[in-house]
Design a protein around this nucleic acid. Structure first.
Length: 265
DNA sequence: TATTCTTACGTGAGGGCGTC
DNA sequence: GACGCCCTCACGTAAGAATA
């Protein structure tokens, strides 16, 4: 039986543009960018982080993440991924309590923090080690530094449970372009998969899958026609992963291929 | 070179049903 | 009403060929 590691250290190094395919962020994470830049698309916001940035990721939300290398250089970063076990250990050993629900941003840069910079510098020397004891120790140090620098994150870390049941219509209208599984949408809206399907059908009179595809295709149609973007610029933006399938689905819905909508420069 | 089309295959969504 | 299980089949993905 596989045992889930309690903490994970990830050293990333890419020479090409890299897109994270599943945008569902399931764990807390802190990331340091050594070189290149990092673009984050949330439902209503785009952020660009440059080399030297330290970024905090809250668990349980959707975001499209793009790693962009500098010219003739790699994109390089290290991340510490902290799962619930690590956080729970930290909470109990430090007797932390939830004073109010976290209302801050899901992804943001931790600015002007020399101890955190030093911490990540040491991680690059640490390498991709798999010593679990050492990783837990490193995680605890990171959490100490994090809460010292940003005490408001205590309420975020204490919020480990299932997301509360939220307005399905508002959430889906805001996040439909994220290409993730239906079960993830169910989780993020605080429902079981069965309840999600039922609520969805009651609200939209169609299945989640059909609704999502129609919304994505409508958005693609708008981008091709009104923004004069090419099909290759559009298909990833609206949540398709494959151009051939986008083209096929588009033609099936609108009767013409996307290239015929695109009006050119 | 970019886009579209075809095909095969694996996956996951839909929906029915039983249980709590 | 909410949930979980299970079966079926439509859909997504990948690869490669055809076309503009």
């Amino acid at each position: 039986m596989d045992v889930m590691p309690v903490a994970k250290f990830v050293h990333a190094c890419y020479s090409n543009k890299k897109l994270v395919t599943d945008p569902f962020i399931t764990e807390f994470a802190i990331m340091h960018i050594k070189s290149g830049s990092f673009i984050v698309y949330e439902a209503d916001k785009k952020q660009i982080f440059t080399a030297g940035s330290i970024i905090f990721f809250k668990k349980n939300h959707l975001a499209k993440l793009i790693k962009v290398p500098e010219v003739d250089k790699n994109f390089e970063s290290v991340s510490m991924i902290l799962n619930d076990t690590v956080i729970k250990n930290y909470i109990s050993s430090n007797h932390l309590i939830m004073e109010e629900r976290y209302k801050g941003r899901n992804i943001f840069a931790l600015k002007n923090c020399t101890p955190l910079q030093d911490y990540f510098d040491s991680l690059y020397k640490y390498g991709n080690g798999s010593n679990e004891g050492k990783l837990i120790e490193k995680s605890m140090v990171l959490l100490d530094l994090l809460l010292l620098h940003a005490p408001q994150l205590q309420s975020a870390l204490l919020d480990l449970g299932m997301p509360g049941k939220i307005d399905l219509e508002a959430y889906m209208s805001k996040n439909f372009m994220f290409n993730t599984e239906i079960k993830n949408f169910a989780h993020l809206t605080g429902r079981s998969l069965a309840s999600f399907k039922r609520d969805f059908n009651r609200l939209f009179f169609t299945s989640p899958h059909k609704w999502l595809q129609q919304k994505r295709l409508d958005m693609a149609f708008f981008m091709l026609k009104e923004k004069s973007l090419k099909p290759t610029q559009v298909y990833l933006e609206v949540g398709f992963e494959d151009l051939s399938h986008f083209s096929f689905a588009f033609k099936k819905t609108f009767g013409i291929p996307p290239s015929m909508i695109y009006s050119g420069e």
